[in-house]
Amino acid sequence: MTVVRFVFAALKPGVRAADYERFEREVDYVIAGKMKTILSYCTHRITETGAGLSGGPWDYVERIEVTDRAAYQAELAVVGKELIEQLYEKYLDRSKTVSVWSERIEP
């Protein structure tokens, strides 16, 4: 069973997209690549949302495919703790962050 977490995030006021995206490339992707529970990780800049989508606005969506939800959360609490703190301290608006867990429907 494929388990994927989608995280919708908005930048804090005044944060430049280029600064956040550099952090993603230089720090977030590197740490995600070292985590044993992450099978794939990617961040996407949102360019348009449908009129009926509520809760935003968001600037980015992350797709995180994991081996196991509980194991990922446990590993993230240790390996990613400093990363998460830095993300919300410098770049992202925690009040607008929304997370969705999903299970792939296999063909």
Rank of each mutant, 00 (worst) to 15 (best):
R16Y: 11
Y72N: 02
A32D: 03
I105K: 12
V66Q: 06
T49S: 10
V15T: 14
M35A: 05
D28Q: 13
V79F: 04
Y91T: 01
K36A: 08
V7T: 11
G56T: 10
R25A: 13
A32S: 14
V100G: 00
P13G: 12
A51E: 12
A70H: 07
L92E: 11
V30Q: 15
Q73A: 11
F23H: 15
L11T: 06
C42Y: 15
F8D: 00
K36H: 11
A18I: 13
D59M: 11
R25M: 04
K34L: 01
L83Y: 05
R5C: 08
V27W: 00
R104F: 05
D19R: 00
L87G: 05
K34S: 07
V7P: 00
Y41V: 01
Y88I: 04
P57R: 07
R94V: 15
F6L: 09
E26Q: 08
R104D: 10
V7D: 00
E26K: 01
F8R: 00
T49Q: 06
A71R: 07
L53C: 05
L92V: 10
E24G: 04
S54Y: 07
K96S: 09
E24S: 13
L76Y: 05
A71V: 01
V27T: 13
V3N: 03
M35P: 04
K12S: 07
